[in-house]
Amino acid sequence: KLETFPLDVLVNTAAEDLPRGVDPSRKENHLSDEDFKAVFGMTRSAFANLPLWKQQNLKKEKGLF
């Protein structure tokens, strides 16, 4: 399991300012399950079932792209 970080560490943070080991294209993977659901309004599995373009739009909207 990946290390999780608080939302404010990941949202609207440039790649070079992210904690070590965080993939800038997969910031959402480093949210706790609770934060993930609070941000996206759905579970990880529901998010994973969305088309890629919709996932990317949601990530942009939430500052996690």
Rank of each mutant, 00 (worst) to 15 (best):
N57I: 12
G63T: 01
V39A: 08
T13L: 11
D23F: 03
F36E: 00
N57C: 15
D33H: 06
D35A: 07
N57G: 10
F47D: 00
D23E: 06
N12H: 11
D35T: 06
L31Y: 01
L18I: 06
L58E: 02
D35Q: 06
F65L: 15
T4S: 09
N29I: 10
Q55H: 00
K62S: 07
F65R: 08
Q56L: 12
H30C: 06
A14Y: 06
D8T: 10
T43H: 08
A48F: 12
M42F: 02
Q56E: 14
R44G: 01
E28L: 04
P51E: 07
K27M: 15
F40D: 00
D8S: 12
M42H: 01
H30N: 08
K1P: 14
T4G: 04
F47R: 00
G63L: 06
K1Y: 11
R20A: 15
K59P: 00
V9T: 09
P51K: 02
V22G: 02
E16Y: 01
L2T: 10
H30T: 04
E28S: 03
S32V: 03
L10R: 02
D23Y: 04
L10G: 04
L50V: 01
K60R: 13
G21V: 07
D17V: 07
F5L: 07
V9A: 09
N29M: 15
S25H: 14
N12R: 10
F47A: 00
L64G: 03
A14R: 13
E3A: 11
P6I: 02
M42A: 00
Q55I: 02
E61Q: 11
L64T: 01
L52A: 10
T13Y: 07
L10T: 02
P24I: 08
F5C: 06
L50E: 06
A48Y: 14
L7R: 05
V9W: 12
F40S: 00
V11T: 08
L64H: 03
L2Y: 15
F65M: 15
K54V: 14
K1A: 14
E3R: 06
R20P: 15
R26Q: 11
L18P: 03
K59T: 03
L10W: 01
P24Q: 08
N29V: 11
D33Q: 05
P19M: 04
F40R: 00
F65V: 13
L52T: 08
D35G: 04
L10M: 05
T13W: 10
Q55C: 01
K37M: 15
S45K: 12
H30E: 04
M42C: 07
R44N: 02
N57F: 12
R26P: 03
L7A: 06
E61W: 07
G21C: 10
G41N: 12
N29A: 15
A14C: 14
G21W: 07
L10S: 02
